[in-house]
Design a protein around this nucleic acid. Structure first.
Lengths: 115, 115
DNA sequence: ATAGTCTATCGTCGATTGACGATAGCACGC
DNA sequence: GCGTGCTATCGTCAATCGACGATAGACTAT
């Protein structure tokens, strides 16, 4: 289980292997790390990750409330993080829940660790 | 000592404490991590870090030879990494030696680890 | 001194990013 | 069905990024 409140849960995380099909070195790994690093290369997006990590927010509207940015801007940051594989969401209903994709985060940490 | 070939050595690294004056959380930490992450948010810059990490290159011209980019472009990438605190250089002479600033790299890893 | 080599900087260009407001799409309650 | 609230997307604009060639600066060797 990822969440304590099932109503805002994201679907179960993919098998751990999925995010590690690319090796930790070589051009592919370089590009993957670059994409992940670029995704967290903005203070607002790091703030979002911290909020979700500490479970201080779960749904989009809460994240919007915590940041001094317009709703559309926050939505864009969420999209970037999701595209990078650092977030997952449950698209059901008007309240969209977000949670960290720990596979992607692990992948990021692993790629950085070996530099 | 950082290097095996003193002729291309960078000046001694600053005391470890220097890069850790900012805490690991809060807005300052978010901005610092964002700057570091943005600096490695490009495949060429990750490639450069790997080259230097493996000591496959030490001076600017070697790095230029290893990358499919113009010399000016490589120089710009080196500047970005240096500004972010991930590289140091010895500015003496026409052959400029580069090496990884392990304080900055440690800082990056520490900031990412606690997300 | 002078020529040659190496690196940093400048200027420019197209592509991308980040911000916003406006708007469309979607589930729920009435 | 119909409005209401929430989220995603679109369009726009200024700012930044990334690439290059050209040029300037610095040191070496001749």
């Amino acid at each position: 289980m990822d969440c304590d409140e099932p109503e805002f849960c994201c679907p179960p995380a993919a098998p751990v292997g999925e995010a590690t099909t690319v090796s930790l070195e070589g051009p592919e790994a370089d590009e993957q790390l670059a994409r992940l690093a670029k995704a967290i290369g903005h203070p607002a997006r790091i703030h979002i990750l911290r909020l979700l990590s500490r479970k201080e927010a779960r749904v989009c509207s809460q994240i919007v409330d915590e940041l001094p940015l317009a709703q559309s801007t926050v939505s864009e940051h969420l999209r970037i993080l999701k595209d990078a594989g650092l977030l997952r969401s449950n698209g059901d209903g008007p309240r969209v829940g977000y949670c960290i994709d720990f596979n992607g985060l692990r992948r990021l940490k692993a790629l950085i660790a070996i530099i």
